[in-house]
Amino acid sequence: MSIFLRNVNVLSRQLLKTIHNPRTADIKHIKRWVAPTLKELKRRRDKIGPEPLRKRSEFLEWNYDAEIYAFGKRLGEEFDDEILRKSLIHRSYVIQQELKQEREETTTTTSAPTEIAKEDNSHLIEAGKEIIKNYLNKALQNQYPEEPAEALHKYLTADDMLSHVAKHLGLTDLILSEDFPVENSTLARTFEAVIGALNESSGLERAELFLKDFLLTQLSDKDIFDIWEPEKPYEYFIGIAKELGYKDVEPRLCNESATNTILANYQVGLYSNKKLIGLGYGETIENAKDTAALDAIQKIKLQNFNKKQALQ
């Protein structure tokens, strides 16, 4: 079946090549048999269905050694070859290889046993996780108050984020694991293992700089309130206003328009000691109050925190 499929593909490709690049001087028209033939080939291809996804390593020219070497060089990092290789081997892959070997032994008794990887990346994953956690704690706690820092930490260490980074670093094809296509969780674990490998190869400082360059930068251009938002902003702000040094916070209605229609818009300002500390809008006064509180939190809590840290 697969040979047939390949033949169909090769044939149609050859045909298309001659049709789409006709040497205009030689060919004045397209032969009458070309269209029906292409149609028939297309029909057969459609009948067989789409080609199955193949691992990149199944292709003939795949060179794992070169890829491993290029991975570190591409990122400008010095990896120890052994450790990097180990960091890409998952537990599931080792088990798969062992089973395969057992099966081979039962069928062919005389052949020499093939070499299989014994060590997987589980301890590198643990090490990498610890490094990521420590580094993010250090980096975020200087920048944000406790609650948003926690939310950002969670956001950056989620499987979705780690797998996104890992995928775009080009780890997908290098991973040795049982699952194909590679799952997000596997990608995320591999990223952690690579951090562990970098730590063992070039030291903690390089690993942290790597995280700064590739993981922490994911926060660039993102709005803090997209990631973290207090459930009841106004109550939350009233709760923290005193410790921030704002007494007698009161909301005031600054502007309103089209109040008798469904497009009503209100503008509420939060005042403390006759000074405007936050301005918000909304379709109702309650909504506007909440967004004014959000504005105040952003202006006072988050930005002042940065300034305070910078002064220290």
Binding site: N265, Q267, A288
Partner: peptide
């Protein structure tokens, strides 16, 4: 979309009565 961005849009396109 955070609440702050949503109301920014709302306020930008608010209809004023003159």
């Amino acid at each position: 979309m955070s609440a702050l961005k949503r109301v920014q849009q709302w306020a930008t396109f608010a209809r004023i009565w003159h």
